[in-house]
Amino acid sequence: MATAAASVPLTKLQAQKQSVWMDFMSRAFVRGGELARLIEDDGLQGATSNPTIFEKAIGHSADYDDDIRRLVSEGADVDAIYQALVVDDIKAALDLFRPVFDRSSGLDGYVSLEVSPLLAHDRERTEVEAKQYWALLDRPNAMIKIPGTAEGIPAIEDALAAGLNINVTLLFSVEAYEAVARAYIRALKRRADAGQPIAGIASVASFFVSRMDTEVDARLDALLAATGDASRKAHLESLKGKAAIANAKLAYESFGKIFSGPEWEALAAQGARVQRLLWASVGTKDPKYPDTLYIDELIGPDTVSTMPPDTYNAFRDHGRIVEAPTLTADLPGAHRVLQQLQEAGIDLKDVTDHLLQDGVKKFAKSFDDLLGAVRSKRAQFAG
């Protein structure tokens, strides 16, 4: 259980103007009282969901069976059942976070629902589904998640221009992040030019962290296996576990440049908020690395850290207590790490392209599995 004493590291994050969101969602979590306790005791400020999270929640528990049975009796098909279940969960979470949203004047208190990952490369249908979910949730603290693919970015811009709050997901490269941030600014300008308010528009750019190290370290291992040179081996070993943090720091450096200067200041004067960077995939995949590594090293203002439950509990228990941002520490060193990786033979563009494709594929697989579980239960209850 969460306690005020155990939440000191989390409080220190918030003192650095970094928000803490939970990367988790299930009916038992929302309705059993645990989410309310985390909001009350730890000051939890938001939550995110994705197809993998819902696949585990719906496909591997009986918590939803009564609702599925009822929906089947009403003649609902698989898609309608899925939509009803997830919208119901997200609405309940949004209502719990509404006081956070109100107290923070709309800075926090958000819960995200993702459009179908099967639409990741379909601009028009992504936009249609985003607007549909926005209308169904009907809460000012809702966020709709859209992948930052080439086709997703124009859909993101149009959705923002239409007044939706958007969580841009599956960002791995600095270049992709910059494209998303500029799309956000374009959307705000479109609204301002049309005489529409921009003060209430909220967006985060979800930049994935740990998967970068997993992929780069695997490629470094392949290079290590191919060389017998002792000095090269030592150099390659020294680069392991450094790509993700360096990559994130460069994204934050770009954030500082994009959200400054006359163009941005003109929008800020009309009430616009920056599109915060959200650190996603912060759970450590390699047991050799500290379990709070991707939180400890990425602390800074105007950011969000969204943590899965195990990482959240680890950080609450023994997270690094800082009095100054770590995100801006040794930026030259971050540039140097990525340069050294390129020189060592790691094609970072190929890495981030692969991670995006793989991320879309994994979420699509989870979504297919989720619909399959709903289909199976529907058949069971219909029979």
Rank of each mutant, 00 (worst) to 15 (best):
V180R: 06
N247D: 13
D88P: 03
A222S: 14
A57Q: 01
G333P: 06
E151R: 06
M25D: 03
S173M: 07
A28C: 10
P308D: 12
D67G: 11
L171K: 03
A192R: 12
G200D: 15
Y252K: 04
D102T: 13
A76M: 09
G333W: 01
G345D: 12
F255W: 06
K349N: 14
F207Q: 05
I258N: 07
S7C: 12
P262W: 08
F255L: 04
A234S: 14
R232W: 03
L355N: 05
Q340T: 06
K131N: 14
H121L: 13
A130N: 03
I299G: 01
L239S: 08
L327F: 08
L370H: 10
A280I: 01
L278W: 05
R123L: 13
D291W: 00
P309Y: 00
E175T: 09
E297L: 13
Q340V: 04
Y133Q: 09
R186K: 10
L38R: 05
N247L: 07
P99H: 04
V322S: 06
A251K: 01
A194H: 10
D42A: 15
A230W: 10
A199R: 09
F259N: 08
A187T: 01
S49W: 02
R276S: 11
E175K: 11
G32Q: 05
V168P: 08
G46S: 04
A162Y: 09
E114T: 07
D63I: 04
G283M: 09
E34P: 06
K131W: 03
Q16H: 02
R276E: 08
G372P: 14
R378S: 13
I321P: 05
Q14S: 13
A269Q: 11
D330L: 00
L220H: 09
V216D: 05
L107V: 14
K12I: 08
L277H: 03
G109W: 01
A80E: 15
L13T: 02
D108L: 01
E297K: 03
S376K: 14
K233Y: 09
L277Y: 05
L298H: 05
